[in-house]
Design a protein around this nucleic acid. Sequence first.
DNA 1: TATTGTTATACTCTATAACTATA
DNA 2: TATAGTTATAGAGTATAACAATA
Lengths: 143, 143
Amino acid sequence: MGGEQEVSELGAELRTAIARIYRRFRSERAAGELGEAALSVLISLHKQGTLTLTELSDLDRVTAGSMSQTITRLATDGLIQRRRDTADGRRMLIELTPEGERIAIAARAHQHTWMNARLAEFSDDERAVLREAAALMRRVADD
Amino acid sequence: MGGEQEVSELGAELRTAIARIYRRFRSERAAGELGEAALSVLISLHKQGTLTLTELSDLDRVTAGSMSQTITRLATDGLIQRRRDTADGRRMLIELTPEGERIAIAARAHQHTWMNARLAEFSDDERAVLREAAALMRRVADD
DNA sequence: TATTGTTATACTCTATAACTATA
DNA sequence: TATAGTTATAGAGTATAACAATA
């Protein structure tokens, strides 16, 4: 057990399961709702407060160029504000507007409604497995 | 235990962990490699053989229009072939070309190299948790 | 020189809606 | 009428590369 072949199979299973459930999340998204990338930024700002562009792009593992474009969209929609860091003129300090804060909270709540309905059908043991797995996946994702 | 609040937290944790590890997969992808959607189609065809467009779009939970475009890209690249179903002239039968078969196998192997390296560092118990969790996530994804 | 951020360009992936062809 | 598939259009999300401003 725990041999080469078995570990390899687990990698395949896990990779496939994650891709499928992620696509399922995406397909559950209603028209007009924010996309994954935009929402992720709002939630990071909601949890951690003011962040720079580099911090945001590191958090989501995208390039600074990609994140700059996501941020521009959010600013256009009035959900975030940018201001220069007076202590370091290269940095932009990014924070939620009141409307962005409202959307972040609402989106996060709505986002989990579907998931929670399904988790409620699992046993306590199964939920415990998923809770542990979430922590392990975080470890993998964060290196 | 298993109360309303705890289940809700688990939904949030799991949702976030899945989004993060999925983005990590994407960021590990080398330039020139196939994207997630295209690769998913190749792997479905590799596992299940000839499929119709509707079957493929159902598998990945995308619209027929989206899948048609993905298929067109793959056909242009010479990785899949389309032919009319003689028994039902509306249907297109989609299958891998030899080159597509080669790419599907190679991509799948390469895709898991990084994941397997990380899984090898986990304990047998932790891998067991992830294996169980993969099955549970499949259940959620597949409804 | 190094870091921070923006912009231009291009590609993948997706949806919706209008369409054709077949059943 | 219903189903299978395509195409046009639009938008999100991403990368790379060239760039400007600041440290």
